[in-house]
């Protein structure tokens, strides 16, 4: 880091810096560190805000082990995760490859802009519009099916436990307006032109190029996206809350909604704090694990 380099021997401590940092750390102490620590601490209590809260040890965590809804919610985000890193990456990858294979700079710009334009809309609008798309009577999906004579296929997509989760995951199709697309695209732009030329000389086809050049070049970014997908999926909740509230019949239950229900419906604040703590620990394990793996990988690559 470029610091102010004082000659050794007569370095003075710039006391002013602590004064500068004081308000920042004071604010973070109250509104960031305290809540995080308070959540972990109170997960060991029967937390009744405003009243006496008896210490119960690990009881909340024991309750969690037997909480079928909690485990069902993990099954659901497991499915969402697999979907998020396969189908939801294939389309962005395809789009990025196609954009890069366009010959004119202007066409690339036009398509890139059109493809990412949905990102300019608030996420909540996207979800509400898809909620409308699935409307059993007036929604786009069923209207389209009826228009092409497939009336029999029309169904209550988010009201039916069998289709609700799939419908939820299909929100935003084809998912090109997304971070993965931006990442894939900039990764492809960074592949040196000489490598492609060399591949062409060797007679490598399009698929071979994708497999042997593009994907290895993206590996680092893909790892990062993978970690971000895990973290995002652990926090998944807004779409489910708007469209299904975790229903029908808990078919779209996710950990965040389970945690909120524990606090605000069952007023079991200690249990909610325990669930939040578990989500934190999982996030931490994934982040730190990725950090260590990345560091190790980087060292090997350099060696």
């Amino acid at each position: 880091m470029i610091g102010r380099k004082a000659p050794p021997g007569r370095r003075r401590i710039p006391w002013g810096v602590y004064l500068v940092l004081l308000p920042t750390f004071a604010a973070l102490a109250v509104f960031a560190y305290y809540p995080a620590l308070s959540g972990m601490l109170h997960s060991l209590y029967e937390w009744r805000p405003g009243f006496a809260s008896p210490f119960v040890g690990l009881e909340n965590y024991v309750t969690m082990l037997g909480d079928d809804l909690w485990w069902a919610s993990f099954r659901n985000i497991g499915i969402i995760f697999v979907w998020a890193v396969t189908l939801m990456w294939v389309f962005p990858l395809l789009a990025a490859e196609l954009v890069m294979s366009l010959s004119s700079e202007r066409l690339r710009f036009v398509f890139r802009t059109l493809l990412i334009l949905p990102l300019a809309f608030p996420a909540v609008v996207n979800v509400l519009l898809w909620q409308f798309m699935y409307d059993p009577r007036d929604g786009v999906v069923n209207s389209l099916l009826r228009a092409v004579g497939l009336d029999g296929l029309a169904s209550n997509w988010i009201g039916d436990p069998d289709t609700a989760l799939t419908a939820l995951m299909t929100v935003g199709f084809p998912w090109v307006a997304s971070l993965p697309f931006l990442v894939f695209l900039s990764a492809l732009q960074n592949v040196p032109a000489e490598i492609y030329q060399a591949a062409e000389v060797d007679g490598a086809g399009r698929l071979r190029r994708l497999w042997s050049i593009d994907l290895p070049m993206m590996l680092r970014d893909v790892k990062l996206l993978l970690v971000m997908a895990v973290i995002a999926v652990l926090q998944y909740g807004m779409q489910a809350h708007i469209m299904t509230k975790g229903g029908p019949d808990n078919a779209t239950q996710v950990p965040v909604l389970r945690m909120l229900d524990a606090a605000f419906l069952d007023t079991d604040w200690g249990y909610a704090a325990a669930l939040g703590t578990v989500l934190f620990v999982l996030t931490l394990v994934v982040s730190v694990g990725a950090l260590l793996a990345g560091r190790k990988g980087g060292r090997n690559a350099r060696a």
Binding site: Y33, G237, V256
Partner: peptide, 28 residues
């Protein structure tokens, strides 16, 4: 741009908060 005792520790404390997901702090 400054060097001072505890710089790395304090910065690490800030960066550590990046690891705390918003949902964890929601209830507390």
């Amino acid at each position: 741009r400054y060097r001072f005792p505890g710089r790395n520790l304090l910065f690490g404390l800030v960066a550590a908060l990046l690891m705390v997901p918003a949902v964890t702090s929601l209830i507390p």
